[in-house]
Amino acid sequence: MARIGIYAFLVISALFFLLPIYIMIVTSIKPMVEIRGGNALAWPVDWSFAPWVKAWTQACTGIDCNGISSGFWNSVKITIPAVILSVLVGSVTGYTMSFWNFRSMNLVFGVLVVAIFIPYQVLVFPLIRLSAAFNIYGTLHGIVLIHVIFGLPITTLMFRNYYASLPRELIKAALIDGAGYFRIFVQIILPLSPPIIVVAIIWQTTTVWNDYLFGMVFAGRDNLPMTVQLNNIINTQMGVREYNMEMAATILAALVPLAIYLLSGKWFVRGITSGAVKG
C-alpha cells in the first residue's frame, strides 16, 4: 500500500511539472484561431510548425526582425569558452586547495564560498565601471570573462570537495617518485575526474545559457544571448500577440539545457554521488 502511495505521488508530481511543457508545445503548433478558442489542453486540429519557423527566422527582437537564430549563435559563442575556462580553472584551484597547503588557504576558500551567496545584482554596477575601465564592456570576451569569474566559486567548491574524497596517498606516492605540481594534476588527478567534470560542465552550461542579467548588461548589442532576445520578443511585439510563435521561441531557447539534462542526467547523478557534495 505504501508503494502505491509513493507511485501515485510520483505520477502526480510528474504531471504537475509536465503539464506546462505540454501546454507550451501544443500552443506552439496551434493556429491562432484555435488558441483563441480557450481550450489550452486540446490537441491542435490543424497543427503547423510555421510558428517555429517564424520564431527562428522572422520574430522581432527589437528593431531587428531576424528571429532568435542570431541569439542562439551568440549564446553558443558565450557559453562554450565560458564553460571551458571556468571548469578548467576551477579544477586547478580545487586541486590546489585539496592537496597543496599554502598560507591563507582557509581564508581564500572561505571567500570563495561566501562569493557563491552574494547576489549578482549587488556587483553589477562596480563590474560595469571595472569592465569599462579595461575597455571590455559590451564585448564578447568581456561577457565571457564575467561568466568565468562568477562560475569559479561554485566550480572550485565542486572540484575541491570531489578531490577531498580521493586518497592522499596517491599524491604522496607521486611526490616520492619525483612528480611535480602539474604532472600530478595531468597524469593522476585528471584521469580520476570525469564524473565531477561532467557535473561542472552541466552546471555551468545551464547557468550560462539561461543567464539573462549579465547578457543584457555586459554582452553588448551585437552579442545579445538568446534569453535577452526572447524577452525582447515578448515585450516589444505590437498588435495581435502571436502566442504560438512566443511559445515556440521559448521552447527553442530552452532546448539546449533540456537536451543536456536528458542526455547527461545519469552522468550528473553519478558525479554527484561520486563525491561532488562530499567535504
Rank of each mutant, 00 (worst) to 15 (best):
V113G: 09
Y120N: 10
L123C: 08
S48N: 14
T61K: 03
H141M: 04
P119Q: 13
G38D: 07
I68K: 02
S69F: 07
C65W: 12
L88N: 05
I136H: 10
N101R: 13
V114P: 02
T61A: 15
S69L: 11
S48E: 11
V83M: 04
G138V: 07
W56R: 02
I80P: 10
A115T: 08
V53S: 05
V45P: 01
W43L: 14
I118H: 08
I128L: 15
I143N: 01
W52Y: 14
T57F: 14
W56E: 00
N135V: 05
W73G: 07
V33P: 00
G71W: 00
L130F: 14
W52F: 13
V53L: 07
H147M: 06
V144A: 06
P51M: 12
F109T: 08
M32D: 08
Q121T: 14
V83N: 03
S86W: 01
F109C: 03
V89K: 02
V87H: 04
G94M: 03
S98K: 05
S48W: 04
V144E: 02
L127P: 00
G138L: 06
W43A: 14
G110K: 11
S91D: 07
T57Y: 14
V113T: 15
Y120I: 14
V53T: 09
C65F: 11
F109K: 05
P81L: 10
L85R: 04
F49K: 03
I146Q: 02
V108W: 09
W100E: 12
A132D: 13
P31Q: 09
H141N: 11
N135G: 11
W47T: 04
A132Y: 13
Y95K: 06
P31I: 07
W52G: 01
F99V: 05
Y95P: 01
T61E: 06
G67L: 01
C65N: 09
L145G: 14
W52Q: 01
M32L: 13
W47P: 01
I35P: 03
S70W: 03
F109A: 09
F102V: 13
G94H: 04
S70N: 11
Q58A: 13
V144K: 01
V124R: 04
M97E: 01
I116N: 13
P31E: 08
F134I: 12
N66C: 03
F72L: 15
P126N: 15
A132C: 02
P44C: 06
I146K: 00
S98I: 09
I63N: 11
D46R: 08
S98H: 09
R103P: 02
P44R: 03
R36Y: 11
S98L: 08
N66P: 01
I63T: 12
